[in-house]
Write a protein that binds this DNA or RNA. Sequence first.
DNA 1: CCAACTATATATAATGC
DNA 2: TGCATTATATATAGTTG
Lengths: 203, 203
Amino acid sequence: MGRGKIEIKKIENTTNRQVTFSKRRSGLFKKAKEISILCAADVGVIVFNSTGRLFDFASSSMKRLLERYRNASGGRAWNNEYEQMLSQFRNLKKENEELQKELSCVTGEDVGTLAPNQLDFLEGNLVLAAKKARERKIEVLKYERRKTESKVIGLQQKCSILREWLSNPEIPEEYDLDNSGGQTPPPPGFRRQPNQPNLQGGG
Amino acid sequence: MGRGKIEIKKIENTTNRQVTFSKRRSGLFKKAKEISILCAADVGVIVFNSTGRLFDFASSSMKRLLERYRNASGGRAWNNEYEQMLSQFRNLKKENEELQKELSCVTGEDVGTLAPNQLDFLEGNLVLAAKKARERKIEVLKYERRKTESKVIGLQQKCSILREWLSNPEIPEEYDLDNSGGQTPPPPGFRRQPNQPNLQGGG
DNA sequence: CCAACTATATATAATGC
DNA sequence: TGCATTATATATAGTTG
């Protein structure tokens, strides 16, 4: 319907395609609006152009229309994602309940429903778990002790270095060792390299 | 576009409305198809007529179109139900993960990440839980023992009744005690009250 | 790139069977 | 009720500014 008849196939010229899209889109939406009014219909139109931009029209509310569509189509053409999520949701919920139950059993909160042999098994597991926790605790404590020890050794070394340094007569005057406020002097071995005797060699 | 111009307002005549709906619906779908082909667009049309019947058209797949629409519209006109479920879903998932972690900690499977004081706490809890399980087990066992004992006592009573009954010369002839097939005689103490001596009083 | 403008193709309201 | 016809209203392709 225009000056010349056109074949219904993709318009290759980009600008031409965009112009036609714009015109026909408004035409489509107009028709949708008309049928909705004339025939008391609920109409929704969704269009993505070739560049992926979205245009839509809804005679009432797209949200309500789509909800209605989901009910009416009965999953036929409905969103797989939705259905999948629904089943996953149910699974998760079930799993969650089981976990919670298991957890309450395992902490001894809800042991009322268990049979003696189950209780026996549970007790064994708990004792084992407690043992594991204890072992791990000891391991960690040992590790921390080693760390502390090596720290102490390091401090002792520094201390002996400091002592040696103090017994050294070459104390520069600008360092006031009794100064408790203000800036502390830089620790020996880090800042006094320029005028310090070689401690490593000096023993 | 027809013999006469019509005003765009609801057609009150039902049959007329239905006819117009049918014609315009096919026209709308045709236009949707044309724009999708001409302009390489992705188009979907959803229509409910005034009686609530659903008609739809999609250039590709309505399912994919609606998924795409959900992404593109960014929840603007999207299904509340869906969004709500999505957030609930995320919460559940998170909760689930936490439960699982907690459970694996509590069973001593994954204690590697815990600090010594946490381990201490865990150990205490596990010992307590084990104790609870043990207590419950003992309780259940005691209960079952009591049940068994009372059963034994009941059996002993029945036994003594039977013994007394056997030593009683007034055995009715219709009772065949060696009868292994057929109907068993009614147990003493329940059916023979009429011609039985008072056992409670008799000692 | 947009709007206005035709000339023409299409859609469809009214009609008839 | 539903389909075919037809006269007319609309939509729009191509064109112009």
